[in-house]
Design a protein around this nucleic acid. Sequence first.
DNA 1: CTAAGCTACGTTACCGGTAAACCTGACGCA
DNA 2: TGCGTCAGGTTTACCGGTAACGTAGCTTAG
Lengths: 331, 331
Amino acid sequence: MKANLEDIAKAAGVSKMTVSRVLRGGTGFSDDTRDRVVKVAERLGYVPNKLAAAFGSYQASTLVGMCVPRLTSGLFAHVLDGVDRALSRLGYQLMIGANNHSTEEEEAWVRQIASWRPAGLILSGRNHTPATVDLLRQVAAPVVEIWELTTSPIDMSVGFSHYDCGAEMGQFLLRRGRRRAGYVGALARADVMGQARLEGFKAVLAQAGHPLVDQEVLMDMPGFYAGYYGLETLLARGSDPDVVYFHNDEMAVGGLAYAQAKAIRVPEDLGIAGWGGMEAASILPKRLTTTVVPTTAIGKAAAEALVARLKGEPGQEVTVVPTRLVPGETG
Amino acid sequence: MKANLEDIAKAAGVSKMTVSRVLRGGTGFSDDTRDRVVKVAERLGYVPNKLAAAFGSYQASTLVGMCVPRLTSGLFAHVLDGVDRALSRLGYQLMIGANNHSTEEEEAWVRQIASWRPAGLILSGRNHTPATVDLLRQVAAPVVEIWELTTSPIDMSVGFSHYDCGAEMGQFLLRRGRRRAGYVGALARADVMGQARLEGFKAVLAQAGHPLVDQEVLMDMPGFYAGYYGLETLLARGSDPDVVYFHNDEMAVGGLAYAQAKAIRVPEDLGIAGWGGMEAASILPKRLTTTVVPTTAIGKAAAEALVARLKGEPGQEVTVVPTRLVPGETG
DNA sequence: CTAAGCTACGTTACCGGTAAACCTGACGCA
DNA sequence: TGCGTCAGGTTTACCGGTAACGTAGCTTAG
């Protein structure tokens, strides 16, 4: 890089500090000086050095870190997009990472990102290792926990209740006359949030006197094939469900494919419900019964809460974003 | 942050420089000294300051910037994932951005990222504004252009030829006996690469004496609905194609849905071909005829080319990753 | 026996910003 | 006339690392 503040200062006949103030849009200089400085900066092709700025003064960092479970998740891609749009518009940069649903990997990521002294952090989920919490305290930057709602966040939280999602779907399926519900999930050990949906679902069913008849949780990625084979396994056991709630839409679509392959009529013989609102599910001939999650809105809200805090405004501690149960034609 | 190198140095009874050398795994200290320093660093909960390191010495940056067209693209999510896995394993951090298929937005992003003095950059596509190229020269960091192959990259390139993808699909459809091919695309102005596929497709058809009978390019996002309505528009014009090549899989699936709605038999009455290898297309009853792009491999190759260059190894200038035409049952 | 070389450090000088304190002349005002 | 105030600056002192170079003490080749 050729030019720095010093070079501009010399060429404009002022001090480095004045250049700094002008370029950051501060006060304490005449219009004449500003014009001169700006012109020289442009002429020299000045590229600011955020490294130096952030290093010299911790207030000056515009770096935000965000960690998601998987970068290939369609849902989180939209959250990421919401965050990125909001942040880049406000002049912040986004450093990302993936934790593969592991709090240990999250800790490793936080350790890395902490060494960049970020202005703020966005984490997915509310489960963290003690060491992570400790690191976050040391970083002393605003933290937003997204996706799963916490009533007692480390700092701030934006999300919804997975338990309520499951409960709401349970109520809906009961209203539609379903009495023998089953569940097919995946990756139970790692994905705490899917577990929470199952809990809510089960609780409502039990309370209504029609408890879950069977569940199949595969130790596998929650995708199309897990849904396909999960439903196959469930039905093979003879528990004879009249509706199956899936971990997510991708698995539900896999279940639908299995039903079609075996000439099981949906929704007459078997109801199928998913979760998440996968875009691609729109390609199905029948609209999937599911819960739509406002992914982009979550990202936007998280970014805005973070920036509000950075600007010294109080900032919402807990933001609840509403999910929406979409009835569809499969449930 | 409480502890810095100085604190560790004092507590261990050595100089700051020795601590720096120990923690970076260098040489020039005894085993005894190393053990003492490492122990003290751990006890004090030392968190390194990459900001200071990168600022003090430009060789020390482990920051890589990556710009994709859209963060919500399933294909690029996998590229991103491939890059992130490869980089984080090697101790690098990833800063991301989206350019919305606009070279101007890309320029704005490069300008932002340049101020962080990144160790390397990954850009999508080979079209850049002159100012972008200028900035890249100033940053003087390795640059990898991915996705669309360039024979004359700014620095390095990893990708495949969109023109060849289109040409290969053209040849395939001709072999299957198609003689009246149409094309449905979207966002022609912004998406140069889709355009390249169309060119390759057209060239092969024309050469075989069965030129493209009609094309419909919507000024819209290339998604399910664009495919649906695009095919409707095309067919309404009466050009009577026996196969339609779509901009990508999502649009092809939309086209399939239209065909199904209008009781057009696929592939008997009309062939349908897509591009990109969308995961979700696996939920279709018939496998889509398409070209699968090795997204994760592209990301991995790009990251590895970058790191090789950073380590002083020569690094592949141009890496061609092979795409794979998947016949399917719709073409 | 001595010069050269090696090991294991220590010293110094930056990198390019920003905060905070300080300066200075012009002006208003009692 | 003297003093406070304000605009419009300048000066100084860091931030926490790393590169380059210096050096004491020991080893070893010639």
